[in-house]
Write a protein that binds this DNA or RNA. Structure first.
Lengths: 148, 148
DNA sequence: CTCCGTGCAAAAGGTTTGCACTGGT
DNA sequence: ACCAGTGCAAACCTTTTGCACGGAG
């Protein structure tokens, strides 16, 4: 995400915190920023690695708790993907994922045509709010390895 | 899955094992059957709970290893969903999921129209083989609770 | 008979919890 | 000043690994 967009999201975040009376701590700001700035989908531990250099004495526990808060606020998404650890995504707009079934790598896909899907409003009482398409296959690197 | 379908899948499984020279053990048969018979998407531990009553002295380790084998054989799918533990799905045909973002419950959706999506054959060297759509929203039970 | 699969125990992550202290409002 | 947020350590849960034994091919 480019620097301008990151700044904008951070501003919105501050406003949101004030609205809800949520204390705006250094940890929350920096952790959110780290998620926004990472292009891949970092695990809690990867976020910790980045932020711990900026905040002395930062605890892993805090990273987990803050990430949870961000998810609840709706400014970050929890990602469910093949690796053991849960991943996080600063993008909350509609987008999709290519998942390599061999190396578990995940890359974003934005396809205008893919976003036009008409999700059923309801299915047996279930209220559908949004959707994500997971394309499963084999990435370029793994294809080369397999062919060799 | 109905009993007839379960039997059919088990037969295919036996054949597949013989073809590949994979020893067909009681554990593999029973664990596969348990996954097929469960309508939700059980975690390894839930599978263990079901099968341990049928096989005395069954080890959790074995459940994990057998599930892994089944995934590699392609007869079971690994599910990546909000709960901490990995889930498994005996269905390997194209189908989609409704995920409740409040209680993390997952239900299957089969929509003929949803299966007609033309996935891009390739995206930057990535070979797309199949896809799954995850609809995110709120389930009926959670909607009632929220409204109350 | 030969291996591969299994069971057990222990280790290795990832994530959560209890409690005292600090810092934002 | 008050209360929520944080740090630390320990607990907890899921998953993996090493090794010896037993059963399938």
């Amino acid at each position: 995400m480019n620097q301008a967009a990151v700044q904008r999201r951070l501003q919105q975040f501050e406003t949101l915190c004030r609205q809800r009376g949520l204390p705006l701590t250094v940890q929350r700001r920096d952790i959110f920023q780290a998620v926004l700035q990472s292009d891949d989908h970092p695990s809690a531990d990867q976020v910790y690695d980045v932020v711990k250099d900026r905040i002395a004495g930062l605890s892993r526990t805090t990273v987990y708790r803050v990430l949870d808060t961000l998810v609840q606020l709706g400014v970050v998404r929890r990602l469910h993907h093949p690796g053991a650890a849960v991943r996080f995504d600063g993008r909350v707009d509609r987008h999709h994922h290519l998942v390599c079934r061999l190396c578990d790598q995940v890359v974003d896909v934005t396809g205008r045509d893919l976003d036009r899907l008409k999700p059923p409003r309801q299915r047996g009482g279930f209220l559908v709010e949004d959707y994500t398409i997971q394309f499963v296959g084999v990435c370029a690197a793994c294809r080369e390895e397999t062919e060799a």
